[in-house]
Each structure stands twice: as structure tokens, then as C-alpha cells.
Design a binder for these strands. Structure first.
Lengths: 230, 230
DNA sequence: TTGACAACCTACTCGGTAGTATGTTTTTTG
DNA sequence: CAAAAAACATACTACCGAGTAGGTTGTCAA
């Protein structure tokens, strides 16, 4: 809470799981939250999906809410790790944006469990959050998410300036852009066979749609950086 | 359950609230479900938001799940009522699609509570649904939703044919198209002042984005039919 | 007027769940 | 190797919330 706001865009906030068990719990929780939602999943559910009991979870997390927040944090961490490097590409703004979109879209499908939690978190806002500390973490998480969206918004505005697009409302444009890329969480489910390629193909289609929505086109060489991932 | 599949696109399934109290409960439930989600909302919450008690609700609905389903049904009813007429416009496919999009987008903002429930319903799928009858209603509701999406998909494919667009994957295109129009539920909140106009403006921007995503443009006269609503 | 029924309310039961307190086992540290 | 601490498991408690049973009030028809 010192001067971390300035570096918020850098992966300073990263809370990479200390132990492996910690990470396992996060993954299991994400799976459960994804399938049944936050309040419909019991701690016992998460524990059982690990072949363990409550004790193990409460040894690592204070409360169910804190567990949720940790999953949320991890989700944002994944997204930043995927997108931040692309956001630093200092060539054409169009290419930069396309790369960011592709990375985000792929991460969206590759880490569905966590991404679903992110969407839930947006909705879950001012409902419960009993503790004062929890409210505090909540606004922090929201801020992180805002920073992430700002990443896209600035890239979009740069693209608009570069390509002479006139966006009536840049905010709405950003929201729409991300809505397209995020949409896969609602209908895509990995089939386990040729996942990576399938995801890249879909990501390309989504980004194409989103870029066209802005009024421009996805550059031909924008997805080069993805190939060597395979 | 006889031959209603053939007429599914017609508002045959409409279950307009018998009593006014019934409708009030639906509205209140939609509000609660929107704010806290399904399983985080108690029947007492809904009752209390009506200044009543559980008894009133259980007199009209068998269970909490049935109440949710009723809200879902009402939501779909709203959407069909808004979009179906536009889907019958027999001029250019582009105009038809644009009109459908505008109607849908406006309905999305004007009936936020119910629309949020629709999105939850998509996710809520095969989780609980204890009763066999409930599972049955669930597949029926999913079918209704599929029919609604098909409405858009056929309109999109007609537009693509008419305007010589080549959509790699019409399915993905449809999903993206609707994702943009639906996105407002995540960030838009009516301010109560000049709502109707604001919503129309936003809807126009969203449809513009979505149509461009497909590779075409929103016709200038597409939104004529909206003006006389004011 | 009286019955009958709809539209509620009140007061309960009871299963499920978050959280805790207290063991038990394994690992680490000195 | 002993002791301490970490990493769990077990066995509780306390509460909340879905569903129910039975009572109460109004309305309407005969």
C-alpha cells in the first residue's frame, strides 16, 4: 500500500503461490467456482475435488471470500502475463493492439476456470464482503482490473489516432472490443485433442471481428509471435 | 408439449403473469438475482424487497428454482417481443439485422434485471436441478434461447449472402455479434433522467460496432422505427 | 349469510455450510 | 536426534435458508 500504484502495470502485485499446494487449491477452487458459481460452491466441494478436507484449505486461506479473491488475483496475473509484453511492442499501434487481443483471447480459452471467476467478480461487487479488510482488497482488485482494461483502451485510442478512425465513444468501443474477446468463456470448451491450435484459430477470428468493429483490419503479420509457441 | 416446436418462434410459449402480484414477484426476484446471483439470494430477500413474507412467494411458485425459471422465461419473452417483429421485415437483410440488433440492444438496457438472469441461466446449466421436471423445463428454456439466437444467426447469414461477406465461421460471428449487444449489462446502469434516449444512442453505437465486425455497415435509415417510440 | 376458495402470514423443521478448536502427522531446523 | 513448526485431518458448533403445515384475512358466488 506504499507506492505500488505507480508500478501497478508491472507485475509487481504478483503473488505467485508460495507452495505447490497453494496453487493446487487455487486451481481446484477456480474449477468449482466456474461450474457452480461462488456461493453455490462449498469449501468442502473444493476440498473434496482435491481429495482433501476443509482443514487443508483453511490452513492456506482465512475465509471463502479470501479464497475467491486469491483466485481472482491469479486470474488477473495470468492476463497481465499474457498481454503486458505485447502492450510494449513499439511498432504500429494496429499491430500492437492485434497482438494484445490475440494474447488475451488465447489466455481466455486456455485458463477458462480463472476467467469465469473474473467475470463473476465483476458482478459480485458490493453484495456481501463483510470484513473491512475484504472491502479494501475488493477495491484493489477492481483497480487492477481497471488498469488492465486501460491497457486496451489506450492501445485502442492509439490505433484510432494512427488509422484515422473516429470513435464516437472510446469507452464503449473498448467495452465492445473486450466483450468479443471474452465471449468465448460462454460457449468454448476445450476438447483436449488439438486445443492449442484450435484456440489460436478461434482467437484470430475473434480479434478479426473486434478489429473490424473498430473500423480497421487485423494486420497479416500480427499473429507471427504466436506461431513459435507451438 | 404437443406440436409447439413448429411454432416456437411465435410467442406461443408466452406465460404472461395471471395476476399482478405474480408479475411483481417476478420483477423483485429479477432485481435480487441480478444483484446477488441466484444462490446468494434467499426467498426471504425477495419477499422482503416486496414488503412481504415467504408465504406469498411460495403461494405462486413451487420452489426457488421454479421462480428462477419463471424469471428466465419472462426475460426471453421480453426479448422475443422486442426482436421478433423486426425479424419479419422483408426488405434488405442488412436493414433487418440492424433493426433486430437495435431492438435487442435497447431491450438489454431497459430490462437489465431480467437480462442478467438470462446470462446467469446460461452458466447455471447442469449444476443442480434436482427434480426431473426441472431438468425438463431447463432443456426447454435452453431450446427457447437457442431459437432466439438462431433468429440472429439466420439474419446474419442472410446479410452475409446479400452483401457478399465471407464469414469463416458463422457461428463465431453470431456469438460475437450478440456478445457486443449483450455487453451493456456489465457496465450500463440507467440514471433515471433521460434513459430512453441514452439507451437508443448507446444501442446505435453497439450495433454499429457489431455490424462492422461482420464486415458491413449499419444502414442510415435502419433506426427510423425507433424514433416514434419517443 | 354462509360456505368456499384465493391470497397471504406465522411458526416451525431440518439439512447444509462457514468457521473453529483440537488433534495428528510430516517436515524442517538447530 | 529432539523440538518446533508447518501441513494437514477430525470433530465439533452455530447459523442460515429452503421448504412445510397450519392459521388468518379478504373476496365472491349461491
Amino acid at each position: 500500500m506504499s507506492g505500488m500504484e505507480a508500478q501497478m502495470l508491472e507485475p509487481t502485485f504478483v503473488v505467485t503461490p508460495p507452495s505447490s499446494s497453494h496453487a493446487d487449491i487455487l486451481a481446484a477452487a477456480a474449477r468449482c467456482f466456474k461450474e457452480n458459481g461462488f456461493s453455490a460452491t462449498s469449501i468442502d466441494d473444493v476440498a473434496h475435488s482435491l481429495g482433501a478436507t476443509k482443514g487443508r484449505i483453511y490452513h492456506h486461506f482465512r475465509s471463502k471470500t479470501d479464497l475467491f479473491f486469491a483466485v481472482y488475483r491469479r486470474g488477473m496475473e495470468i492476463n497481465f502475463k499474457a498481454t503486458l509484453p505485447q502492450s510494449k511492442y513499439d511498432g504500429d499501434a494496429v499491430i500492437r493492439l492485434a497482438r494484445m487481443g490475440l494474447s488475451h483471447a488465447v489466455a481466455m480459452m486456455a485458463y477458462q476456470d480463472f476467467q469465469r471467476v473474473l467475470l463473476q467478480g465483476v458482478t459480485m461487487h458490493q453484495s456481501g464482503s463483510t470484513t473491512a479488510a475484504q472491502r479494501e482488497t475488493l477495491v484493489e482488485l477492481i483497480e487492477i482490473r481497471n488498469n488492465y482494461e486501460t491497457l486496451f483502451r489506450t492501445a485502442i485510442e492509439a490505433t484510432a489516432k494512427e488509422a484515422q478512425l473516429n470513435l464516437n465513444d472510446p469507452s464503449v468501443a473498448s467495452k465492445s472490443f473486450l466483450a468479443v474477446l471474452n465471449s468465448s468463456v460462454f460457449w468454448y470448451t476445450p476438447r483436449g485433442e488439438n486445443d492449442k491450435n484450435e484456440q489460436i484459430t478461434l482467437a484470430r477470428e475473434l480479434v478479426t471481428f473486434a478489429m473490424r468493429g473498430l473500423g480497421t483490419d487485423i494486420p497479416a503479420n500480427a499473429h507471427d509471435f504466436l506461431e513459435n509457441n507451438k
